[in-house]
């Protein structure tokens, strides 16, 4: 099948798995990272105007597609980094096999459930009013994507991205109940980077995630919410580069 892959910069490789907001290579933090690394970012099928393959039903399909991609690219000692839903996919991949990776970075990632059945661990982004969703997702609301200022084509991509996002995350919502029983297999250095004001998945959720991965560390970035890489690109790049250079 066709898979769109963005490559940017040169140097040691970072396999970047974007979140439900779509590809992240357009943001300034990516330029910073691309000064020292090669960013390899597959576009999840269904995002950025790409089609959803007929057999795709959920995140498992994405995970196995990327296992193929990792073999195909013959990655070695790469850094695996995922954002939000992409962080979930990255954690799943690392729990299967870390042989091709040197480090794992999870940014405001979903993927586990930490509370009981009546606890809403992860904001229901598909059933939350736009204004409230912005407040949960952004420290600075002016950074949020604004449908009113989009062209028709951009708006249609925005709508398609939501469909793909729903496909990968609908039920169980944004998590795999089995993942907590598998995270112990991750045997490479792992860093969680979290926006201090994230209302989609809070830093407390991030700490629970961290505690399930042996030896994982966490950096909380102030004045940022669900997208610290967008809201605080310098602080984000600094946290990443420090971890990567260790």
């Amino acid at each position: 099948m066709d898979l769109s892959v963005v490559r940017k910069g040169s140097g040691p490789q970072i396999l970047v798995l974007h979140g439900g907001d779509g590809p992240v290579d357009r943001f300034p933090f990516a330029d910073r990272l691309a000064e020292k690394f090669e960013i390899i970012q597959p576009v999840h099928p269904g995002f950025a105007g790409t089609p959803i393959p007929e057999h795709f039903d959920n995140l498992q399909d994405l995970i196995f597609l990327y296992l193929d991609l990792i073999d195909h690219l013959n990655l070695s000692d790469a850094i695996l980094m995922g954002f939000s839903m992409g962080g979930w996919a990255a954690a799943e991949i690392a729990a299967i096999n870390t042989q091709r990776f040197s480090k794992l970075v999870l940014v405001d990632s979903v993927g586990i459930k930490v509370g009981g059945p009546f606890d809403r661990d992860i904001a229901d982004v598909f059933a939350t009013a736009a204004a409230e969703l912005t407040a949960l997702s952004w420290h600075d609301p002016s950074k949020a994507p604004d449908p009113n200022s989009m062209t028709d084509e951009e708006l249609q991509t925005f709508a398609s991205d939501r469909i793909a996002h729903g496909l990968y995350t609908w039920e169980p919502y944004m998590h795999n109940p089995k993942l907590p029983y598998r995270l112990h297999r991750i045997d490479i250095p792992t860093l969680l980077i979290w926006g201090a004001g994230d209302g989609i998945v809070t830093p407390t959720y991030g700490e629970a995630f961290r505690d399930m991965i042996p030896g994982a560390k966490m950096v909380v970035i102030p004045d940022a919410a669900h997208s610290p890489h967008v809201e605080q690109p310098e602080a984000f790049a600094k946290a990443f580069l420090e971890f990567a250079s260790k």
Partner: peptide
């Protein structure tokens, strides 16, 4: 998401 085609949803 997924109920309407993208153009309708947009």
């Amino acid at each position: 998401p997924g109920y309407h085609p993208p153009a309708v949803s947009a």
